[in-house]
Nucleic acid binder design. Structure first.
Lengths: 203, 203, 203, 203
DNA sequence: GATGAATGAGCCTTCATTCAT
DNA sequence: TATGAATGAAGGCTCATTCAT
């Protein structure tokens, strides 16, 4: 559909997405008009429609962009480290990113996408795929922890992975709403959960 | 604004909200047209606008409705029970509600509201108020737990309360997306966190 | 069309017209809603539609009302007086009426009717009929003046009658717009015209 | 507000106003729908709203247009001529214009504006401004006439100016209603008034 | 007769998208 | 490729009118 060769000006595409992201974070998808994106980007309608077939298309590209950013944030790292420590490090990085201005902005768009996933099959797939990346990473870490004996063998890695991701999602919500839930505090909450993973934690 | 006397037929108002909820859950606020609500409710445009001044107004009323439902779900209960057990019971009830058809439906609308809170001052207030109800309930339970010695004195009740709420929010997200994260599994994850609250849990 | 016997409650009809007049003077016909009239009259929609078949009907009744008032204002008087003096007396009375609050109000509605006459055959007839009353009265006065020798025989009574009515209409316009054109000044202008009617006025 | 650059195609703006004028003269402002203007102009809704923010805006622009046309009609002319003769010439031109098809049409819209002036502050200002142009022109002519001795020193130029304008307004009314009051007849009436201005006209 | 909730046609306006330049 | 005026389907909302009580 895009009428220009993809490689010719990915820069232009990015320019558009950047402007769209600003608008989407500020007003949501459906309150953002193409004219808003035009104004924000300084480009013209024709130009935007040369790079994206529909507004929906821009939303999908936005989803990909978010996905890519997350994948980078949660990319594979030093496998020699202790799994629990790795988990904590990743969580820390994730939470720190939420403190930054543009980390927050993309999360606001992310929340829109979460809602949009209820309506759009395509966005739903993106969101689910996006969630499965950290889940499987965490599962692997927990399994390694169980093998190493630092994680209780009684817990189900799949369940805990989803639990951890849930917590992260909730942190995101409270952050984008501007609630006073800083990275340090969130990390304390996370640590409490980690404590519950210890092999001999009482019940 | 309402063109009919407020005391007349709150039932009619509810009828409209019921229809709107079905539409909103299915298509989102902005994809739902008043015509959709008209079709779903079997009423006329004029009648709807006799009870709500604008579409936005319907969204706000929807927010109140959700808020009310949550408050009921998390209403005060037997104070003689062990705080941790109480916490677990509330969590259980909340998760069971998510399994039911209309519990799910209202959560889908809730997700829309979470997103809407980024744009609308009014919805934002509602959402924040809605979140503060369980937070303060949980804080009180944790403080009682600390006094009774069943909860570690090292944890900060406010932080843990927010962490628990975060987890719940994440559970909701995964449920409304149709992810395979059932109540029982979610409860296991919750229990893991509770374990981390125990007074002598290792650090 | 009115569903109540006409003689039963002309008072109720008048009540409605009174309220409508207030609304019409304030907002014009088309900006006035039936709800406005309902609010102003303290009656109900059903009641109003029991006395008038349509909103258009109310406008027509309004026209009749205005017509009647004008006919009264310009009703036949002492025929023994000097025609020019009579003319002046009528003009004076007319102009004084315009200084009064409710005289002004009905003229505002009258202006709406003048405009409405362009669209509605029915209102057009009313307006024309309303204009012909003073015209024929004035023609008769001028003809008598010509017979008596106080009015130049060179002038055409029909033309001067229309000219006088034109002046009066213009006075009304400026009054309803709130322009500083008081009765006394208008009367001076009128006198200047009368002077031009004198049998030996030079040219 | 305009979504197209203001300098681009004033012609298009005029095209819209032309179509609107036809509709307004035929049906009045409030009976004219945007659809009517669309049909009459052959343009689209979007296009019209690219040039005018609201329907009200079109009405205001219409007022300006009428104002401009009047100013042109009554524009300054040969100052060496006798003031009374000038006055008569202007009146003549004005009355002849009323005989023409489009002169009549714009006067019909003018009548709507006169009525609208009761409701709209903005239209009111336009109408008043429009009326003040001829008034001040006439005042100056009369004052010059008084200096030259062709106009009685006893009359108040301001009052007579308003009187003359009143007469003109009344002529307009009768013309737009289709009354048999032709330019020649109206001019006779006007002459009668002028006669009353002569220095030695009897009192 | 009176009430007022309900009706529904239709209005003004927006906005995603196209296309001649 | 880029531009931006133009398109027109569709949305939110109003309001004259009806009718069961």
């Amino acid at each position: 559909m895009p009428k220009v060769k993809p490689e010719t000006s990915l820069a232009r595409r990015d320019e558009i997405l950047e402007a769209a992201e600003i608008c989407f974070a500020r007003q949501g998808f459906h309150q953002t008009t193409i004219r808003d994106v035009i104004r924000e980007s300084g480009l013209s309608a024709g130009c935007i429609y040369g790079h994206f077939a529909t507004k929906e298309d821009i939303i999908h590209a936005m989803g990909e962009r978010r996905h890519a950013r997350d994948a980078m944030l949660l990319s594979p790292r030093d496998e020699s480290m202790d799994p629990i420590a790795t988990l904590r490090a990743v969580a820390r990085e994730f939470l720190m990113d939420l403190q930054k201005e543009d980390g927050l902005r993309i999360r606001k768009v992310g929340l829109q996408l979460w809602a949009e996933a209820l309506r759009s099959k395509e966005v739903h797939s993106q969101v689910i795929a996006g969630v499965h990346v950290p889940i499987s990473t965490i599962i692997k870490l927990l399994q390694r922890g169980q093998r190493l004996g630092t994680v209780s063998k009684k817990i189900d890695p799949a369940i805990i992975a989803r639990t951890i991701v849930s917590m992260a999602q909730g942190f995101v919500l409270q952050r984008v709403w501007g609630e006073p839930f800083e990275a340090a505090a969130a990390l304390q909450g996370f640590d409490t959960l980690l404590r519950g993973l210890a092999p001999d934690a009482r019940r």
